[in-house]
Design a protein around this nucleic acid. Structure first.
Lengths: 207, 207
DNA sequence: CAAAAACAGTGACATATGCTACTTTACAGC
DNA sequence: GCTGTAAAGTAGCATATGTCACTGTTTTTG
């Protein structure tokens, strides 16, 4: 099962590498909203999402904000950073829904990076993807107002969840965008007027 | 000369790799404010800064904003992204001052990434550094007001230039922080009152 | 040196967002 | 169906930032 998934997702990995991953990694199931890493803890493994999705965020002062989502087939690049230094995590990772993860022990990851070029290049690809994501976020924050960012956020979220009907509280959106609940309520009403979204009970429909 | 620099900056590189870099790379001198890459152009080489410093920025609509500075010993990670895809650059890189760069041809970089684990790990280190920088920028933008960001910007700049007396126009600061000139003038005056900076003619002294 | 260009300063006003303090609504569990 | 709790809505005000229109100052250059 591990093998077939690995081969599917990363067709370029060497055979021996797949065998090693098979041998040293473990599979773990997580409930929705379960923490995988909490800021300040030490990281011992690199998670790769087999099924489900994970939200990775960081905090500054009392504010939290979204770094990126990891969905099926992707890894948590930020854990890679901790492959090199042995410092406590400066981010938290929490499952969005029930998820299945493959956990690769960090000390093995360190070895594989040296031994297998294909592994290093997979990591580089992930780094690039996450860098681009973060760059997108940064551009959004600098160049656009909340209304645009909110729409962008909702559309992205709808894509990830493969549904335009989102069950999410104003508070959680506010946290992810680094603003306050009232503001989200206000902007959502404005988006409603402009036919961009529709609020149905406690859910949000992206139009 | 190339060799000694490489060995100094990256003591972990294999001997054969250093020899190959020696063989295939070229050294080029740039004037201040000279473009190395312009957004939309194709990239053919990976620059490593031997001397001087480079500003890398991106634009969105009409707005430009700072991604990071590359100073002596560092590489332009964004060029790595283009090692994998052959798309035109989505960023611009310009020298801040007179600089000397070592240019590694991208097709060689691709080979070295596979062949030399030490090269891949150097790249990963750079990626991590730049990711952290961008994360810092993002946090700044989300969590702090312009006054704080401006001070942070000026201090960083002073560090890079190894001088607390900065020769930079309000307009350029505004561009880098994604705001407008008048606002920078206003905030700088406030910072002056609070003894954080001092404006001397057309230069800014960071206190 | 004089004129032009670039840069800086300023007041006035518009607006987006943040925040407080409250009311109202929806929904889960009994 | 009730009811308590969490979520959502709302009014009103404070503030930071964006923008306009203009003046003043420094630097460049012909």
């Amino acid at each position: 099962m591990k093998t077939s998934f690995l081969v599917d997702c990363f067709p370029n990995l060497e055979k021996e590498l797949v065998a090693e991953i098979e041998q040293y990694s473990s599979i773990k199931n997580f409930e929705a909203k379960e923490y995988i890493v909490k800021e300040g803890e030490f990281i011992r493994s690199l998670p790769i999402v087999l099924d489900g999705s994970i939200k990775v965020y960081s905090t500054e002062d009392t504010m939290q904000f979204l770094l990126y989502y990891i969905s099926s087939g992707a890894s948590c690049i930020y854990s890679f950073a901790h492959t090199f230094n042995n410092e406590p995590a400066e981010f938290s990772a929490i499952t969005e829904v029930k998820s299945t993860l493959m956990l690769l022990p960090l000390e093995r990851v360190r070895l594989w990076l040296k031994k297998y070029p294909s592994f290093a290049s997979m990591v580089l690809n992930d780094y690039q993807k996450h860098y681009t994501d973060l760059l997108h976020t940064t551009k959004q924050v600098i160049c656009y107002n909340l209304e645009d960012r909110l729409i962008d956020y909702l559309k992205t979220k709808a894509e990830i969840e493969k549904s335009t009907l989102l069950k999410i509280s104003h508070q959680e959106i506010a946290d992810n965008l680094g603003t306050s609940r009232e503001v989200i309520t206000r902007v959502l009403k404005k988006l409603g007027k402009n036919q961009k979204v529709e609020q149905m009970g406690r859910k949000i429909k992206v139009l």
